[in-house]
Amino acid sequence: MMKPVTYVRPRWTGLFPAVITAALLGCGAQPPRPAGGAAGSDTAAWAGTARTFLSTLNDRQRAVASFPFDHPERTRWAYVPERRTGIPLQMMDAGQRAAAFEFLSTGLSERGTGLARGIIELEGILRDLEGAGSLLGPPRDPELYFLALFAGPGGTHPWGWSFEGHHLSVNVTDLGPHGQIVAPLFMGANPARVPSGPRAGTRLLAAEEDLAFELLHMLDPRQRARATIAAQPSEDILTRNVPVVGGMAFAGLPAAEMTIAQQRQLRRLLELYAGRMADSAASRQLRRIDEAGFERLHFAWAGAHQPREPHYYRIHGPTVLVEYDNAQSNANHVHTVWRDLENDFGGDLLRRHYARQPHR
């Protein structure tokens, strides 16, 4: 079983925080801005909000938030409650937090940003529900969400950034003309359904569960048997927090064997996950899925065929893997992730970028 990465905040020496600050604040080299197109909009939006965010920080805060692009922390990610690399919300004032969430919205859609805020709110709800018992386990703190920026030498492309804490990991790589890669993108919810209190009944990731059950029940008995890969689900997503997803065999029901109505439902579910990203990034992901062959997607299911019992599903194709798991805490604890099988953390596009524009 793969264990989550444990993060240790690195100690910084030298001038790198000053370099990235100078570049983004306009005191040195400006980030390249491609002419026109969605990719240019991605870069312009991220660079502008990065400048705004960094301008709110003092020197110490910038040093905590800024890293070179090739630092190993860029490709380490986790979704358990622990300290991360970067500047935490608890180290920011109200204005800085507002700028940080504006920055987050350059990689996520309006819905995605709302989900991120909801996950952070759930952390406080979970702390209240656990009460004194939480002292025996990991801290539940809505202020332990961390923003980290990564930039190339002299503040050049490629760029990257992450926003991460318990049940949330947003990893963005900006490659200029190639636009943004928003992957891995993890979102979870505990409790999946709030049992009591002012927010009782709230289901932050309701659509991710409901649309999948609708698709499962649209399948005929033969199709459902083909889609079901296990009677019991794992207690977590299968890929955990590996930096790169290795070869996973296709399993379950191929979209090629679905009816038109079932394929449309599968697309709705896939678009729900892609819709967490900024529009341009989502469009590029969906276009690549279609180019690789939508009919090659596989829908796999494990566990119960009804809600409120442990269940798992995934959507797996040549370029994408979406996983959903609701098996912990009496099936009231959801983990979901979007993996770009070619371009997590930039991946193949990043290698192509370096081949064409060598960096020291």
Rank of each mutant, 00 (worst) to 15 (best):
G124K: 14
A200H: 08
P198H: 02
L135K: 01
L204A: 07
G165N: 06
T202E: 15
G155Q: 10
D174T: 12
G179E: 05
Y145R: 05
P191G: 01
Y145H: 05
I125G: 02
D174V: 15
D141C: 06
W159Y: 15
G154T: 10
A200E: 14
G165K: 07
G114C: 10
F213N: 13
G176T: 06
L108G: 01
F103I: 02
V182A: 09
P195S: 06
L215F: 13
H166P: 07
F146Q: 03
W161F: 15
E130Y: 03
G137E: 05
H167L: 14
L215D: 12
H178K: 13
V194K: 03
G107H: 07
E208S: 12
Y145E: 00
P142S: 01
R140N: 00
G124W: 10
G188W: 00
G124M: 11
N190E: 08
E209K: 11
E130F: 01
T106K: 08
L126F: 02
T113E: 09
F163A: 06
I125S: 01
V182L: 10
A132E: 12
T156E: 11
F186P: 03
L144K: 06
R140H: 02
L168T: 09
L136E: 06
L144P: 00
G179Q: 09
A206L: 13
G155F: 14
A192C: 08
A116Q: 04
G179R: 05
T106W: 10
L135S: 03
T106C: 13
P177M: 12
E123Q: 06
G124E: 14
L185Y: 09
S109D: 09
P177A: 15
A148M: 03
L175N: 11
